[in-house]
């Protein structure tokens, strides 16, 4: 049932014969993997099809006739490269910002004791329970007062103070044995030093996780850019994508090309973050 044991890959050097449970694991992973990957392949395939081909042969993963024109058209119809740059800029700023503010706040919630801590923490959780659709208008008014409408700051700033990120990191920080910090306290380390030399290095997997989630969230955010941004040169990818769905006469093949383009950077980001997921806590700590 619990298939392969929780063996860290790099700790066992011995070669073992392939066991049944391992075969089972492969079978399940492969079957699930196919289900997971097919829609993605379909999107990519559709991006190389003509409109008619897409409609007449929707399930063919290999286009009857490969065409690059969808990609060319995407760039010809909208300044997609600008949308890319804008989205990268916003995503990078937000992700870095969230990692800093969330890690600091999470440390306070997880490790420090001060009056009102649990109440404040509950307040953080509570803000996640109100859908953004309903705070849209007050947020718009706020942005107007701050003079931030139609700027990238209106998309970056509100994202920097993430209740979600704080909660995620708090949970991870809580799993770090307090003895580590106690030892450091004995050595005379202050809070900042304990935070930066013990908690942070040990939290690489958690930080990588949060980073990738925030990145995705900002990358795919639609509501705020749709309402706050007006100028074409400030638009984000999701706005570009939505424009391809703009009317009833949707050019699905172009939409698929645009979608494929917008997914690729996220896949690359995930692949590069994998390294951090793979590192174990013990390894991180001992490497120094």
């Amino acid at each position: 049932m619990i298939l392969e044991p929780i063996n860290v890959a790099n700790t066992t050097g011995k070669k073992k014969p392939i066991s049944w449970s391992k075969l089972c694991a492969y079978a399940i992973l492969s079957l699930g993997g196919i289900i997971m990957v097919i829609p993605f392949l379909w999107t990519v395939a559709a991006s190389f099809k003509t409109y008619s081909d897409l409609f007449y042969n929707p399930y063919r993963l290999i286009p009857t006739e490969w065409t690059w024109t969808n990609y060319v058209d995407v760039f010809r119809q909208v300044p997609f490269h600008l949308y890319f740059l804008n989205t990268i800029k916003i995503t990078a700023a937000s992700t870095l910002g969230v990692l800093v503010t969330s890690a600091l706040a999470a440390y306070a919630f997880a490790r420090l004791e001060f009056p009102g801590r649990d109440f404040l923490f509950m307040g953080y959780l509570a803000t996640m329970m109100i859908p953004r659709q309903i705070t849209l208008v007050p947020t718009f008014v706020l942005m107007r007062w701050l003079g931030l409408l139609d700027t990238h700051a209106s998309l970056i700033l509100p994202g920097l103070f993430s209740a979600y990120g704080t909660f995620l990191l708090r949970q991870f920080f809580l799993t770090i044995p307090t003895e580590l910090e106690e030892a450091a306290t004995i050595d005379g380390c202050g809070y900042i030093r304990r935070f930066s030399t013990i908690i942070l290095p040990l939290s690489k997997p958690a930080l990588a996780t949060l980073g990738i989630f925030i990145m995705m969230q900002v990358w795919n955010d639609f509501l705020y850019p749709m309402v706050f941004i007006q100028s074409d040169e400030l638009r984000t990818l999701t706005l570009g994508l939505s424009i391809f769905r703009g009317d009833v006469d949707i050019q699905w093949n172009l939409l698929m090309a645009a979608t494929t383009l917008s997914i690729v950077p996220m896949v690359i980001a995930f692949l590069s973050a994998q390294r951090f997921f793979v590192e174990g806590i013990a390894l991180t700590g001992l490497k120094g």
């Binding site: 208008v137 718009f140 008014v141 409408l149 749709m226 309402v227 939505s242 009317d247």
Partner: peptide, 23 residues
């Protein structure tokens, strides 16, 4: 003339939000 263009599905949301925000 400054265009304010979005997809149909989002148009009235954006329009109403702007009106509500005094813009």
């Amino acid at each position: 003339v400054v265009p304010v263009a979005v997809a149909y599905n989002d148009h009235h949301t954006k329009l109403l939000t702007q009106i509500a925000g005094g813009m």
